[in-house]
Design a binder for these strands. Sequence first.
RNA 1: GGAGAGAUGGCCGAGUCGGCUGAAGGCGCUCGCCUGCUAAGCGAGUAACGGGAGAAAUCUCGUUCGAGGGUUCGAAUCCCUCUCUCUCCGCCA
Length: 425
Amino acid sequence: MLELKFVRSHLEEIREMLEIRGYDLDLSRFEALDRERRDRLSTLEELRHRRNRVNEEIAAMKKGGEDASHIIAEMKVLSSEIKEKEKALPGIVEELNDLTMVIPNMPDETVPLGKDEKDNPVVRTWGNIRETGFTPQPHWEIGEALGILDFERAAKLAGSRFALYRGAGARLERALISFMLDIHTLEHGYTEVLPPFMVNTASMTGTGQLPKFKEDLFKVEGWDLYLIPTAEVPVTNIHRDEILSEADLPLYYVAYTPCFRSEAGSYGKDTRGLIRQHQFNKVELVKFVRPEDSSGELEKLTRNAEEILRRLSLPYRVVSLCTGDLGFSAAKTYDLEVWLPGQGLYREISSCSSFTDFQARRASIRFRRKGKSGTELVHTLNGSGLAVGRTLVAILENYLEEDGSVAIPEALKPYMGGMEYISPA
RNA sequence: GGAGAGAUGGCCGAGUCGGCUGAAGGCGCUCGCCUGCUAAGCGAGUAACGGGAGAAAUCUCGUUCGAGGGUUCGAAUCCCUCUCUCUCCGCCA
């Protein structure tokens, strides 16, 4: 969320921001409530001040053995007046808070202006799209033919948008997870964490999934627990309500977790294959950094994610999300899109974002500068490094051979026990 | 599931016959002194959040001792509810 003071003093900029982001949000209610909160608060504080002073007198009188009963009688009246006035405040604060919570983050000034994903400029492209003498296949056909993906039985087990991996397919998924974790921990300096796959309301609110995106989440019935839609949630919340010291920063974490998404509102989209599942695996990168470092850290984080694609020799491009396509909490986002020959298009495989202090404020993640008093909010960043299921899709489609087998990328062979090909049984 | 203990500042840890305790003491940290350097030592400072004043340094007020409610003129201290943590027993990956 944005800072109350900032919203109060930048209403016009925020209206413009909402406009370019494509939000329809009325701020007049905010203004009225903010005014009212401050008015009520100052009269209340005045009364409290009086009470505190008189209470000191009473204490002194009692100590001196004097009779304070006449003042106490007066204070009874004042006290009940304070209690009466206090009642109105929490409701106002709560509504004001709710209003502030649905205002999206301010985009970074380098974010391109645009309406939707068609306006996202390509920042760079890497790799060569393979020329083959045969027709590319979509991964679900490749996977089913090889007997490594079984969507029919998965539907029996759980329904649509679930997958059953089998044999070399299951192993390939596991190999990718290990491969990604190894690169990021051993070469990029991230600390591996394995967090809970369910979190409470406070954590979901801290990273911005709640209250706005409740319908995208799976909730555990009868518990204050939600299945995580991304490791960003538990990992960013590791430091919720903490004050870090400057020397701790930057903090780099990498986590493998499954991710659970209801995909409400995407009926009929990507119904075939692994692309859009209720449950999928992801390796996530999360950073906590000083404000002045965050833009450089976003570039670095993006490169770290790209490195996985390069090691796997998968062609991809990087796009910069335009204002209209930017996520709610993000100040800036790069999407990595991998080439999928079976479908003849680039497909998102990673999303790397800087959130400036937007998440940190909600989650109250601060740090203290060396030699300075007071606290400052950290900046948080995260990015997929990478979506594992989609990486497997890219491998199947990009490494398909004419005979229907799939070659194992060089970098993965050690993780596949030296296997060279996945061939039809 | 049964029995008990606890939750205080960046950390550790005092604080219940309610009233200069926003909170002793220690550690850590910051600044200064001392020292050939380091260590040690000495001195001072060091909570967050919100409101108001000020160009700023800063000043001032309010709130906060797990959360919420209650008693009271006044609550870290008394009462109730909840959450979490720990120990023991039972059960189970």
